[in-house]
Amino acid sequence: MKIITIPVTPFMQNCRIIVCEQTQQAVVVDPGGDADKINAALKQHNLSLAAIWLTHGHLDHVGAAHNLREQHKVKMIGPHEDERFWFDNLPMQATMFGFKPINSFYPDEWLAHGDSIKVGLLEFKVLHCPGHTPGHVVFYQQAHNTVIVGDVIFKGSIGRTDFPRGDSKQLIDSIVQHIMTLPPNTAILSGHGNNTHVAHEQATNPFVSGQFG
């Protein structure tokens, strides 16, 4: 497995291209914008785009998803259906976040906790992790000890919960139950900032380590 990270939009959101190196098939996770950069990376690495996967419906994670779907004739998959209202409100989000105007669009398939999705020979388990948003999901690849977590948890921090339908207790519960229970050497690839590991966050993250009350 190879993962190419492309920071997109003024929010420097970590769009990820996940590559099955045996098949050269790829998926784009959370294409928040800058479709030209994403397409350039696909071309540079001679990759065939198989699908678009979304962790949640915030515009800085989905802004280029519809354009890429139309260009490559692929499916947009995820997140959980509880996220529908964020897709309903994409035009409002554009105003709220200072993006160019955008019309609502929707995934081709919603995901549920425990689902499995594949790119080439790589299989990922879907974990529903609400709190930052109600329909947020993460993608866990067991063989390569990697979880792509969107805005659930960051190095030393956690996702915001002050947006509509955010819930801080629910977010902590999601992290403790579904992220901190993964093997300690699991790499955590967040939607913003640097990568980290489960063991590092268990030991140092003030929101989940238990060291600070």
Score class of each variant (00 low, 15 high):
Asp108Met: 02
Gln71Asn: 01
Lys75Trp: 11
Asn46Phe: 07
Leu171Gln: 00
Tyr106Gly: 07
Asp36Asn: 01
Leu122Met: 15
Met1Ala: 11
Phe87Arg: 04
Ile6Pro: 00
Gln13Met: 09
Ala64Arg: 04
Leu90Gln: 13
Val19Ala: 03
Ile179Cys: 03
Cys20Ser: 07
Ser190Val: 03
Ala187Leu: 15
Asn205Tyr: 08
Pro79Ala: 06
Lys43Gln: 13
Ser190Asp: 09
Ile179Ser: 01
Val149Gly: 09
Phe207Thr: 01
Ser209Asn: 10
Leu189Ser: 12
Lys125Asp: 13
Arg16Lys: 14
Ile188Trp: 15
Gly33Thr: 04
Phe207Trp: 15
Ala94Val: 02
Lys100Gln: 12
His113Gln: 06
Gln22Gly: 05
Gly120Ile: 15
Leu127Ala: 07
Gly98Tyr: 10
His45Ser: 14
Leu47Asn: 10
Gly150Pro: 06
Arg160Trp: 05
Ile102Ser: 08
His144Pro: 04
Ile4Ser: 01
Cys20Arg: 03
Ile38Arg: 07
Ala112Lys: 11
Phe139Gln: 14
Asn185Asp: 13
Asp30Gly: 10
Asp115His: 13
Ser48Asn: 09
Pro31Ala: 06
Thr133Met: 02
Ser48Met: 13
Val74Asn: 01
Ile18Val: 12
Gly32Pro: 02
Phe85Gln: 02
Val27Arg: 05
Gly114Pro: 00
Gly131Cys: 05
Asn205Trp: 12
Gln142Ile: 10
Ile148Lys: 14
Asp115Gln: 07
Ile3Cys: 09
His132Thr: 01
Ala50Cys: 00
Pro164Glu: 11
Pro206Leu: 03
Leu122Arg: 05
Phe154His: 05
Asp162Thr: 02
Phe105Met: 08
Leu90Thr: 00
Glu21Arg: 04
Leu122Thr: 05
Arg160Ala: 10
Ala26Arg: 10
Ala94Pro: 06
Gly57Tyr: 09
Thr95Asp: 04
Ala187His: 15
His178Tyr: 10
Thr55Phe: 08
Ile18Leu: 11
Asp108Lys: 10
Val152Thr: 04
Phe85Cys: 04
Lys155Pro: 01
Gly98Cys: 03
Asp108Asn: 07
Cys20Phe: 13
Ile188Pro: 14
Ala203Phe: 02
Ile188Asn: 15
Gly120Pro: 11
His80Asn: 06
Ala94Gln: 08
Ile38Phe: 10
Ala199Asn: 07
Gly159Asp: 00
Val198His: 05
Leu47Ile: 15
Leu42Ser: 09
Lys155Gln: 07
Asp60Gly: 01
Gln142Leu: 15
Arg16Tyr: 09
Leu59Ile: 04
Gly114Val: 04
Thr9Val: 03
Ile77Glu: 13
Gln71Arg: 06
Pro91Val: 14
Gly114His: 08
His178Gln: 12
Leu127Phe: 12
Val28Lys: 13
Cys129Arg: 07
Leu59Asn: 03
His200Ile: 04
Gln44Met: 05
Leu127Glu: 11
Val28Asn: 07
